[in-house]
Design a protein around this nucleic acid. Structure first.
Lengths: 121, 121
DNA sequence: CAGTATCCGTGCTGATACTG
DNA sequence: CAGTATCAGCACGGATACTG
């Protein structure tokens, strides 16, 4: 891990009210996080390779990194089964599930935006 | 302008429902956009230099770029007064104002996240 | 299978200098 | 005043090879 995070997370020096908003944004921002979320949303734990397959063209490193960030943020749970070959399953935590309403809000606005700007195609 | 946008915008090839969410995310993602939004939220049009002052340490190029993106996305209106010296004022459009509820949603979740992860300080 | 290590390309962002 | 042009740095994400 050569770099960590945008550092907007803790907002130590915050005198503004946008701290929580920026925290939320930094957590859900990431090229694959939304799609990972959608995959895990089904409810049953999903294996690393299955997530990779669901995403299509993600590299192992990128997927691993995004998953690790989501785990560190408390969005997903990582369960390792001490088997051979190794098996690791990921699932949404309650905190992760609570993102649902945020995505719904973004979905509603996104649709309104697309409509307003006539970006149908 | 040497580069344009992350290209997740139009979602031409979308077969998934996350298109609108990603569109919304790409639009509000940007180092200064949330703070610009907060400044313009007061209601009265604000001049370029006043926005810069409100942000503190943003470069002119970065601010200009963020404003241009927000304008292109229909979030803010740009009014040029043909005076000397030139005066340009920015204000939120109705579409921009409609982001309010999205930010509220992010704010609520962000607060819950901070609480869950004990990131107070 | 599920990663990690290393290298690398690109794009976002900033600093500085210049213009109408 | 309100930008634009150019240069530069670094974070991000990807490719490939290697490991427990």
């Amino acid at each position: 891990m050569s770099y960590s995070r945008q550092a907007t997370l803790s907002c130590d020096n915050n005198s503004d009210a946008s701290c929580s908003v920026e925290a939320a944004l930094s957590i859900i921002s990431g090229k694959w996080k939304l799609k990972i979320y959608k995959i895990l949303q089904q409810g049953t734990p999903v294996r690393f390779s299955m997530i990779a397959k669901g995403l299509g063209d993600v590299s192992e490193k990128s997927l691993s990194f995004q998953l690790r960030e989501m785990e560190n943020d408390g969005l997903i749970a990582r369960t390792v089964y001490p088997e051979v070959p190794p098996r690791v399953e990921y699932s949404l935590t309650d905190l992760g599930k609570s993102l649902q309403i945020v995505f719904e809000s973004l979905d509603v606005w996104g649709k309104a935006y697309i409509k307003a700007n006539k970006l149908g195609v």
